[in-house]
């Protein structure tokens, strides 16, 4: 019974986008560096991409970021919205390629390393290269400025996903593992 997108995926996209908005709005952690925050919402995006796959991840990033921009700023910064989608899409795609099967409950050293390799590459390309390029194409902003912005965002998000994202995935995997060898002590 294949009718395209499964209902569970559709719902995951919708709820995922809603959570993306709430985390983006309320769960940014101030860092020691002035005016920079850890955007926990990207760690959530990475988690959803790994659980629900590239398409869901991409759409959660795209829809979530667009809605977040719209309801908090009344405008949409398309260049960055597109990159959120890109990051969600390719982290999901990479996780698939590297056979990370989070539902089986296995997320050990090997998976942690591959997940982080994927997210570093994807985010470096996304925030560090594509986002500034789009800014230049759309707004003709000065090259240096947008690349400094992009690299800063890439670094901060890579750390966020690397630390929080990995911890979330480990925690999620634990809830999936079957534990039938438990005894009362």
């Amino acid at each position: 019974m294949n009718r395209g997108l499964a209902i569970r995926t559709v719902v995951a996209i919708g709820i995922g986008a809603a959570v993306y908005v709430i985390l983006g709005r309320f769960a940014a952690i101030p860092t020691p560096v002035p005016n920079t925050s850890i955007h926990t919402t990207f760690a959530f995006l990475a988690l959803m991409s790994v659980i629900f796959g590239p398409l869901a991840g991409g759409l959660i990033g795209l829809i979530g970021h667009a809605l977040l921009d719209a309801i908090s700023y009344g405008s949409i910064w398309w260049s960055w919205v597109v990159i959120s989608g890109f990051v969600g899409l390719f982290i999901g795609y990479g996780a698939k390629k590297f056979n990370i099967d989070i539902e089986s409950g296995v997320f050990g050293k090997k998976e942690i390393i591959s997940f982080n390799l994927i997210q570093i590459v994807v985010q470096l390309v996304g925030w560090g290269l594509l986002a500034p390029t789009l800014d230049i194409l759309i707004y003709v902003e000065p090259n240096l400025k947008v690349f400094v912005q992009g690299i800063t965002a890439a670094a901060s998000n890579i750390v966020t996903v690397g630390v929080i994202g990995t911890l979330l995935l480990v925690a999620y995997a634990k809830t999936r593992s079957q534990s039938d060898s438990l005894t009362k002590e």
Binding site: G4, L5, V10, V11, I13, G14, I15, A17, A18, V19, V21, I22, L23, F26, A27, L59, I63, G64, L67, I71
Partner: peptide, 20 residues
């Protein structure tokens, strides 16, 4: 289906905010 996902997001943002 994707359009409906957007509608779901709008519908559940207040609920998720309350949970948060």
């Amino acid at each position: 289906k994707i359009a409906y996902a957007v509608s779901l997001a709008l519908r559940y943002i207040p609920d998720i905010q309350r949970d948060f």
